[in-house]
C-alpha cells in the first residue's frame, strides 16, 4: 500500500452552500475563516497602543487613514445607489465648517458640536443634492466635481466663515490615543452598519436603483426619496470625518474642500474594490501610509496614485480585496491518499 498525496482546497467543506454561508465542523475551520478578519481588526485596534514605540507622526498617519477610510465608505455607499461622486470633499468640508462655526461662535465642546455637525451636515448635503439626484453618470459626477469648488469660491467671495483665513483656535480633542479610538470605533460602526444595511431588503432597493431604476419605479418606490436617504446615510461618516478632523487640527478653512478629500477616497475604493466595504477600508489603510512614504517625492505621488487608479480600473476592476479573498480561498493542502 502506497501513500500518495493529492491537493485539496482548504475551504473545501466549509463553503457548503454559497459564498457567504459556511458550515463549520472544527475550530481549525473557524480559525481559517476568522484569522484574516481578526488580523486586520486586531491590527487596527492595537495600533494606537504602539504609542511609545513608533513616532507620533505615524499615529497621525493612522488618523488620516481612518479619515480617508470613512470618506471611502461614504463614497462606496453612494455608488451602491448608482451615484458616482467626484466630490466627497463637499461632505468633509461642510461637516468641518458646521463644527467650526459652532465651536468658534457658541464655544460648545467637541462632544456636542461633532454629533450636531455630523447629522446637520449630512442633512444639508442631502438637501443640496436633492434637486440633482435625477442626474446619472457623468452628469452627476460633474455636479459633485463642481460643488466643493463652488463652496470654496463662495467662502472666498463673501468672506463669510472666516473667508480665506478660515477659523482657527478651535477646541482641541483630548489626547491622540483617545482620539484614535474614537475614530476607529466610528469607523467599525460605519463599516458593520453599512454592510448590514446593504444586505437588508432596504439595501436591496439601493442596488435595484443602481441596476435598473425603471423597475424600481414600476414597483411603486420613489427612487429620488431613496437616493436622498442614501446620500444622507452615506454623508454621516463623511461629515463626521470633517468635523472630527476640524477639532483635531483646531482649524477649518477652504482647504477642507480640497481635491485630496475627493480623490483619495475614490482611489482607495477603486484600489480596494468597489462594492465591498472591506475593499474601501483596505484601500485606505494601504494608500494613506504609502502616500506618506512618498511625500518626499512631491507631486509625483499624485501621479503614482493616478497610475494606480488607472491600473486598477482598467486591469483589475475587482480590486485588491476580492482578489485576495479569492486567492485565500484557493489555498491548498496536501491530503494523504491510500492506494
Amino acid at each position: 500500500m502506497t501513500i500518495t498525496f493529492r491537493k485539496e482546497r482548504l475551504d473545501r467543506g466549509i463553503k457548503a452552500r454559497s459564498a457567504d454561508i459556511y458550515a463549520l465542523a472544527s475550530w481549525r475551520e473557524l480559525a481559517y475563516l476568522l484569522a484574516p478578519r481578526m488580523l486586520l481588526i486586531g491590527g487596527v485596534l492595537a495600533f494606537p497602543l504602539l504609542r511609545g514605540l513608533v513616532d507620533a507622526y505615524w499615529l497621525r498617519v493612522m488618523l488620516m487613514a481612518c479619515t480617508i477610510a470613512l470618506l471611502a465608505l461614504s463614497w462606496d455607499l453612494m455608488a451602491s445607489v448608482g451615484l458616482v461622486s467626484l466630490g466627497q470633499a463637499m461632505f468633509f468640508g461642510i461637516g468641518g465648517y458646521i463644527t467650526g462655526y459652532l465651536s468658534s461662535t457658541l464655544k460648545w465642546p467637541p462632544f456636542i458640536t461633532i454629533p450636531i455637525a455630523t447629522v446637520a451636515g449630512a442633512l444639508l448635503c442631502a438637501t443640496l443634492l436633492y434637486p440633482v439626484l435625477r442626474l446619472r453618470g457623468i452628469y452627476f459626477a460633474l455636479i459633485t466635481l463642481s460643488l466643493p469648488q463652488l463652496f470654496e469660491r463662495i467662502i472666498e467671495a463673501t468672506k463669510i466663515l472666516g473667508g480665506t483665513d478660515g477659523m482657527s483656535g478651535l477646541t482641541p480633542l483630548p489626547d491622540i490615543t483617545i482620539s484614535l479610538y474614537v475614530i476607529i470605533a466610528v469607523l467599525f460602526a460605519t463599516f458593520f452598519g453599512f454592510r448590514r444595511l446593504i444586505d437588508s431588503d432596504y439595501g436591496l432597493v439601493f442596488k435595484g436603483i443602481r441596476d435598473n431604476d425603471r423597475s424600481v419605479i414600476a414597483a411603486g418606490i420613489n427612487i429620488y426619496w431613496y437616493k436622498a436617504q442614501a446620500v444622507f446615510i452615506a454623508g454621516l461618516p463623511a461629515t463626521f470625518a470633517g468635523a472630527f478632523m476640524t477639532h483635531y487640527n483646531q482649524f477649518v478653512g477652504m482647504s477642507s474642500f480640497a481635491a485630496d478629500y475627493s480623490v483619495l477616497p475614490l482611489t482607495s475604493t477603486v484600489v480596494g474594490g468597489i462594492g465591498v466595504f472591506a475593499g474601501a477600508l483596505l484601500g485606505a489603510f494601504l494608500l494613506v501610509p504609502i502616500s506618506e512614504v512618498l511625500r518626499a517625492y512631491g507631486t509625483l505621488r499624485v501621479v503614482i496614485y493616478c497610475i494606480a487608479l488607472v491600473v486598477f480600473v482598467v486591469g483589475r476592476p475587482e480590486g485588491i480585496f476580492r482578489y485576495a479573498q479569492r486567492k485565500y480561498h484557493q489555498f491548498e493542502r496536501p491530503v494523504a491518499v491510500e492506494e
Binding site: G137, G298, L300, V302, C306, L309, V313, V314
Partner: peptide, 29 residues
Amino acid sequence: LLVRVRGIELSEVIATFAVGVAILETFRW
C-alpha cells in the same frame, strides 16, 4: 485603456480623469 473599459461609464470617467491628472502632475513635478 479605454478599449478595455468601453461602455462602463464609471470606469471610463475614472480612467480618463486619472490620466489627465497624471499628465498635469507629471509636468508639475
